[in-house]
Design a binder for these strands. Structure first.
Length: 890
RNA sequence: AGGCACGUAGCUCAGGGGGAGAGCGCUACCCUGACACGGUAGAAGUCCGCGGUUCAAAUCCGCGCGUGCCUACCA
């Protein structure tokens, strides 16, 4: 026995901590700037500093870690760039809440003190999410950790802003934007979440100014009528052709407003007359521009009606709605109220209903940038995987609208624009200007707005590598190899990185984009705190271990499908980890000393077989990972480790291990077992890094981390395994025979303790010889007392029969046979066979099939037909014998 | 309103034009010298429905039903 023998059950917690510290201490995650190995780079989707690890992170980070570790083991120079996002609105909200709890607010502090408070907060809590990523085993190059508000990254932000401004791609103007009254800031279109609401459609009568009658308009937001500056009808609309009046009197405000004609108006909706509120509706805004209408802002930025709202000034916007409706009723102008479903925009951060509002903001002119981002994917410079997301990507970029980038909050990159207090000139510059270049004035006022968080994230692939400096890191690792992300930020982030990367680096930011699914709860619902269906990854890790959790995520990560997290599944994979652990424990009991060498002259059949299987699983795992098919790789490894290595190989070699009479054979088999375990650990390491590293260090002759091991090369046939079809064929036949015998044992309820007598009948002399050579395997694994293998086996008098491949098996049941049971068993077998036989026979009777199907398919079916009919005949004849024997005995 | 996915064993899901798969659960028998977080065997499915293409459809196409998601300025 080896002194390395390990404990009976795998205990993750201390192992995980120990090895993570080891990897960090040994700097095994560090990328090398000066190094000629192939470069492989991933930038992490930076989690919010306010973030707490959730399932989405866990999946995202696990997949990236699998890729990075796989590449490292494959010999690449890997850079996994980590960092966090300052998450403007989200972080500001968190800190404001904290202040509120202390009875303070940001306005008391003032801008500067408030920002200081946010930095303090980040100092204190900002690394929480990083530590959580480490518990997942993330192999990021932590030395290089970045933050979007770092000096370097802020520099990049200013540079980009200034250049885009100079190129005319950033501009400032008054437009309709989405306004959140709670966050008190503009939001980009993407930051608005739409939701169906049960609302009302209010029909309001607007009297003609000339007193000849009136028309009826419909609206879902009656309070906005206070800001109406026109009523529009479609020029084609017959109903309004003959109207004499050219204007109406706006009720409640008693303001005369024109009736205009605009083809935007949908004649089929409502009355075909549209009230126009340019300051509070994006479409009305456009109409207003076409007709030079006045914009009257009646809802203030605080959600309170402005002075422009006349007697409704000072009311909350929703209170005002009620008041307006009441007032209209009183004047008899409210015709009717219909229930009406419509979608209402909400702030993605605080869920407040957003208001389209007229406001002066900064915008990025998106079209020219988007065109290049589309072209890059069309040309294949960046691949999106799975392909299905390509269409979504094109769709969005084709219909993209200008991007509102200014936010009226304090936490973020302050816009580098100054206004001259003397001549109103706007100065956009990297650094604070001394004086106004137009008039020389020194009193300059900086823009108070900050930039949308996604503005800085859009630069992440190159800003983290030191841009605008021309760094060695950029030279080596840009463009990055792959971006791994969820589809929920395809537009927010991926598309914008493409636009910015191409524009500023003249090259795409990543060659591949791997889009993974969303993790949902067991019912398929999106996990959210408000639903209370959140499964905490850290809790799962505590209870099942990181490796089991990671393996589950990988196994679930089928392309293009959402993941419904199930704890049962995690438990199943914990068992797998334990199985691996115990297989290693078994192997270590037998491995003696250092570096046993495989002597190819002494390879047994199971040795040849498992080496062949190892070769195949190595290939399939490599292919699966290269194609981002994580679940295939995980599934293949699971199957190999448990059902080939443990169930068959280790069981098959036990007699060899306990046999002292053939030391050469034993030594070779131990070497093979050790070799297979060795390579399996390497293959498994990207998925389950902790347990594999732990076992690795128990293996004699291994030095240093498993991360420095080499992935089994496909062409390394000398020391490693090669596909061996002959060994696989014989072994498969043996396994089928063994299963056949076990089946009889099980179905006949014969206790495992009882040794059986069996005979195998085989026609082909070569096959017969091969099986006879390895009969020990059958005797051992089927628990036989004796076995005979012949061309014409004598059927024992009372026996059960099975037919597998071309072998007929007789299991003697002298004294224990239950004839009725055997009849039942055979009948079941025959009926199962019959249905298969029939489908095959039907095909061969079909002329069209014979003439049109490919030759090899026909040949296969013929072969099958023959095998089925042989088997059927044999089973039927045995059934007859058993029946008659049963009669005899009775 | 458009667009996209999904519907396969009791549950969670792979697969994908030529004999229905896995894990969990279930049943029976086993504590055999790595592992009961284990072993061996077994039961279990109109592959959502209806049409079509094909020699052959769970798989491809169309329609329908159901579920989920994304995008959108119909007042």
């Amino acid at each position: 026995m080896n002194e390395n023998v390990i404990d009976k059950g795998y205990e993750p917690s201390d192992v995980e901590k120990r090895w993570y510290e080891f990897w960090e201490k040994e700097q095994l995650f560090a990328a090398e700037e000066a190094d000629n190995r192939p470069a492989y780079a991933i930038v992490i989707p930076p989690p919010n500093v306010t973030g707490v690890l959730h399932m989405g992170h866990a999946l995202n980070v696990t997949l990236q870690d699998i890729l990075c570790r796989y590449r490292k083991i494959s010999g690449d120079n890997v850079l996994w760039m980590p960092g966090t996002d300052h998450a403007g609105i989200a972080t500001q909200n968190v800190v404001e809440k904290k202040l509120a709890a202390e009875g303070r607010d940001r306005h008391q502090l003032g801008r500067e003190k408030f920002i200081e408070a946010v930095w303090e907060w980040r100092q204190k809590y900002g690394s929480a999410i990083i530590n959580q990523l480490k518990r997942l085993g993330a192999s990021c190059d932590w030395q290089r950790e970045r933050f979007t508000m770092d000096e370097g990254l802020s520099q990049a932000v200013r540079k980009v802003f200034v250049q885009l401004y100079q190129e005319g791609l950033i501009y400032r103007g008054s437009y309709i934007i989405n306004w959140c009254h709670r966050c008190h800031t503009a939001l980009a279109d993407l930051e608005v979440e739409h939701e169906e609401h049960d609302g009302n459609l209010y029909h309001i009568r607007y009297p003609f100014a000339d007193g000849t009658g009136g028309l009826v308009v419909a609206t879902t937001r009656p309070e906005t009528m206070l800001g109406d500056t026109a009523v529009a009808v479609n020029p084609e609309d017959e109903r309004y052709r003959q109207i004499k009046a050219d204007s109406v009197i706006l009720p409640l405000m008693e303001r005369k407003i024109p009736i205009i004609k605009d083809s935007y108006v949908d004649m089929s909706f409502g009355t075909g007359a549209l009230k126009v509120t340019p300051a509070h509706d994006p479409n009305d805004f456009e109409i207003g521009n076409r007709h030079s209408l006045e914009r009257i802002k009646v809802i203030g930025d605080d959600g309170i009606m402005t002075a422009e709202a006349g007697r409704f000034a000072g009311l909350d916007r929703f209170k005002c709605r009620e008041a307006v409706v009441e007032a209209l009723k009183a004047e008899g102008l409210l015709i009717k109220i219909n229930p009406h479903k419509h979608s209402v925009g909400h702030c993605y951060r605080c869920k407040t209903i957003v208001e389209p509002n007229l406001s002066r903001q900064w915008f990025v002119s998106a079209k020219p940038l988007a065109q290049k981002a589309i072209a890059a994917v069309e040309k294949g410079e960046t691949r999106i995987i799975p392909d299905i997301w390509t269409h979504t990507y094109f769709d969005w970029l084709t219909n993209i609208r200008d991007w509102c980038i200014s936010r009226q909050i304090w936490w973020g990159h302050q816009i580098p624009a100054w206004t001259c207090s003397a001549c109103d000139a706007v100065i956009v510059a990297m650094d604070t200007p001394e004086s106004c270049p137009t008039c020389g004035e020194t009193r300059l006022v900086q823009e108070t707005d900050v930039l949308d968080t996604w503005f800085s994230s859009a630069l992440w692939p190159f800003s983290t590598m030191g841009w605008p400096e021309d760094t060695p890191l950029l030279k080596k690792f840009y463009p990055t190899s792959v971006l791994v992300t969820g589809f929920d930020i395809l537009f927010f982030w991926v598309a914008r990185m493409m636009m910015m990367g191409i524009h500023f680096m003249k090259d795409v930011p990543f060659k591949d984009v791997y889009v993974h699914a969303l993790v949902r709860d067991e019912e398929g619902k999106k996990m959210s705190k408000s639903k209370g269906n959140v499964i905490d990854p850290l809790d799962i890790i505590d209870r099942y271990g990181t490796d089991a959790f990671r393996f589950t995520l990988a196994a679930f990560a089928a392309q293009g499908r959402d993941i419904k997290m199930s704890e049962k599944r995690v438990e199943g994979y914990r068992h797998f980890i334990n199985k691996l652990w115990n297989a290693a424990r078994f192997a270590l009991m037998h491995i003696q000393g250092e570096n046993s060498r495989i002597d190819h002259r002494h390879l047994s059949l199971p040795d040849r077989w498992i080496l062949s299987r190892l070769r195949r699983v190595t290939t399939s795992v490599a292919q699966a990972l290269n194609g981002y098919r994580f679940n295939d790789a995980a599934g293949d490894l699971y199957q190999f480790v448990w059902h080939e290595f443990c169930d068959w190989y280790l069981e098959a070699i036990k007699p060899t291990l306990y046999n002292e009479n053939d030391p050469k054979q034993k030594e070779t088999t131990i070497a093979v077992m050790e070799h297979v375990l060795h390579d399996t650990l390497i293959l498994l390491h990207p998925f389950i890094p902790f347990v594999t590293e732990e076992i690795w260090h128990k293996l004699p002759g291994t030095t240093g981390s498993l991360l420095k091991a080499a992935f089994p090369a496909p062409d390394d046939t000398a020391a490693r395994s090669t596909p061996d079809p002959e060994a696989e064929a014989i072994m498969t036949l043996l396994m089928n025979i063994i299963t056949g015998i076990r089946n009889i044992r099980g179905e006949m309820n014969i206790p495992p303790s009882l040794d059986l007598t069996a005979a195998v009948h085989l026609q082909d002399p070569a096959v017969l010889e091969a099986v006879r050579t390895h009969q020990g395997i059958i005797i051992n694994l089927a628990k036989l007392g004796s076995l005979s293998i012949d061309r014409t086996a004598q059927k024992p008098r009372a026996s059960a029969t099975a037919i597998v491949d071309r072998a007929t098996i007789f299991v003697s049941l002298e004294g224990i046979i239950d004839f009725a049971k055997e009849v039942q068993r055979l009948e079941k077998e025959i009926s199962k066979l019959n249905s298969e036989f029939n489908t095959v026979a039907k095909k061969l009777n079909n002329q069209d099939f014979l003439s049109k199907a490919p030759e090899e398919v026909v040949a296969k079916v013929r072969e099958k037909h023959k095998a089925f009919s042989d088997k059927q005949q044999k089973l039927l004849s045995h059934l007859e014998k058993v029946k008659s024997m049963g009669m005899d005995i009775r």
